[in-house]
């Protein structure tokens, strides 16, 4: 689905890898390594300074930017909901493309396990966990084929984080989504990921299967990171 060839964007230096359809990839590494920078390159929230990115075997710049962003959904660490009701947030994306259908609302809330009565709730009255569920549902409303997740549970308490994680696991399986998730939680990485990309000092240090990578790191850098 995505191919990165020698991509640079400070602090990333010449990163090369490929993401295939339905891959479940965990992106991890120390703070400031370039994880968010890398994530933002997938839906062109920023562009690389060097190298090339291919989406569906075509240069990413050739794709219409708004359609690309619709297909490659992003969930950030904070929910960043728009002022208004849950419904306002859910229909925001589809309404941009004139694709909103009122019947979708119930389905979306079902996905993230929130009752239908939440539709008319003002978002500032929701708990942190509920807000993050709405944020996830808002991204799903666009029916993306890939989800970019930037530490979506790190601001939540353990129990709520686990609940969101369960929702994510089920959704990704049911919708056969491709996933790229940034997390600092290695237990979560084991639970949700098949493959890992370890980034440190702006370089892709390791790319491999998740349990093996974490159990037997090939590089000194990953070994040290896991020790910390």
């Amino acid at each position: 689905m995505f191919r990165f060839e020698n991509v640079s964007q400070s602090p990333l230096q010449g990163v090369t890898f490929e993401i295939k359809d339905q891959d479940k990839v965990i992106l991890f590494g120390p703070s400031g390594a370039g994880k968010s920078t890398l994530l933002f390159l997938f839906n062109r929230l920023s562009d690389p300074e060097g190298g090339h990115i291919y989406y569906k075997d075509e240069r990413i710049e050739k794709h219409d930017i708004t359609s690309l962003r619709k297909n490659v959904g992003l969930v950030l660490q904070s929910p960043n909901l728009f002022p208004g009701t849950v419904l306002d947030n859910l229909k925001y994306g589809p309404a941009l493309f004139d694709e909103w259908n009122e019947n979708e609302a119930r389905k979306l809330l079902d996905y993230v396990q929130l009752p239908i009565s939440f539709l008319d709730r003002e978002v500032d009255q929701l708990s942190g966990g509920e807000q993050q569920r709405v944020s996830l549902a808002r991204t799903l409303a666009n029916q993306p084929e890939m989800l970019l997740l930037d530490e979506p549970t790190s601001a939540l308490d353990n129990r709520t984080a686990e609940e969101i994680e369960e929702v994510l696991e089920r959704l990704i399986k049911e919708h056969q989504l491709t996933m790229l998730m940034v997390t600092h939680d290695m237990k979560q990485a084991r639970r949700l990921g098949d493959r890992g990309l370890f980034i440190s000092d702006g370089k892709l240090q390791e790319d491999g299967k998740i349990p093996e990578m974490l159990d037997q790191p090939d590089t000194e850098a990953l070994y040290k990171f896991l020790e910390e």
Binding site: T66, F82, R138
Partner: peptide, 8 residues
Amino acid sequence: LAALSLGA
């Protein structure tokens, strides 16, 4: 960022 990422 959220709005742009949704296609705005």
